[in-house]
């Protein structure tokens, strides 16, 4: 919790926010630029910090396990401690410059808050995934490698495969497949969620009725948020299960 790195992370977002607003001064345009950064960067940082934190505090964890404490309390406590501190760095670090530049008075306030919400969600998801990786690998290098690989897969490779499958199966009705495939990747899902908030929602409607029904209405927003919650809940449950069984 008192990690130096979370301050560095906080300062990074603080500087990023100020620089971005200083450069183009337009709050709503800065939201779009920030989206690109947040959607890629928060998962990466969550992953790296998650793995690092687990391996660094391994001895301390073993010490705690010797105490009369429930296993679930220890591991969930560690997980939430890290995820919350990273999310706070993000929310406060970006929040300060945007409030200074008057986001509360601008119409972009909802876009901005959904951006922060999505950023926090992504942090929670990827810290949980990283913990899973670290828990199931004794070898630090391996654990670290798998975690980074997972991030790379979800951030880049998944989209590549998605694109190829869309192009190959061009002749088939793809609307539902495309939507479901997007739901299965938290990074894609977060991106779509923010884009829906920005004025691009009607652009999606261009492609067909299914998209329009799903992405043009509040239904899409609600389902997306629900799936994001699932993406936090399921890996956390896996942490619990693994932590309860694991022999230290």
């Amino acid at each position: 919790m008192r990690s130096r790195w979370s301050y560095v992370y906080f300062l990074f977002y603080l500087v990023l926010g100020f620089v971005m607003l200083f450069l183009n001064n337009d709050v709503s345009k800065a939201v779009i630029t920030l989206m690109n950064i947040i959607v890629v960067l928060t998962p990466l940082v969550g992953t790296v910090f998650g793995v690092m934190h687990f391996y660094n505090s391994r001895e301390f964890t073993e010490l705690l396990l010797a105490q009369p404490l429930k296993r679930s309390t220890i591991f969930l406590g560690q997980y939430f401690g890290l995820a919350i501190s990273l999310s706070l760095s993000l929310v406060i670090g970006l929040g300060i410059p945007f409030i200074v530049y008057g986001v509360t008075q601008s119409s972009a306030i909802w876009d901005f808050s959904s951006l922060l919400l999505v950023g926090a969600f992504l942090t929670f998801i990827f810290v949980a995934l990283a913990y899973n990786m670290a828990l199931s690998n004794e070898n630090k290098i391996k654990g670290f490698g798998y975690a980074i690989l997972l991030w790379l897969t979800l951030a880049v490779v998944y989209d590549g495969l998605f694109l190829i499958s869309l192009l190959v199966f061009d002749d088939y009705p793809l609307d539902k497949f495309a939507l479901i495939a997007t739901m299965c990747n938290p990074i894609d899902l977060s991106r779509i969620l923010i884009l829906l908030k920005l004025d691009i929602s009607a652009l999606f409607g261009y492609t067909g009725a299914t998209f329009k029904m799903f992405l043009g209405t509040n239904l899409g927003m609600i389902v997306s948020l629900f799936v994001l919650c699932l993406w936090v809940a399921i890996p956390s449950w896996f942490i619990l299960r693994k932590a309860n069984k694991k022999d230290f």
């Binding site: 989206m35 880049v156 061009d170 492609t207 998209f211």
Partner: peptide, 18 residues
């Protein structure tokens, strides 16, 4: 790409597309 397969619009602003 979007002209060819409209569904790919879901990849708008993704890192891979960039």
């Amino acid at each position: 790409i979007v002209n060819r397969t409209p569904q790919t619009i879901l990849l708008l602003r993704s890192l891979f597309m960039e």
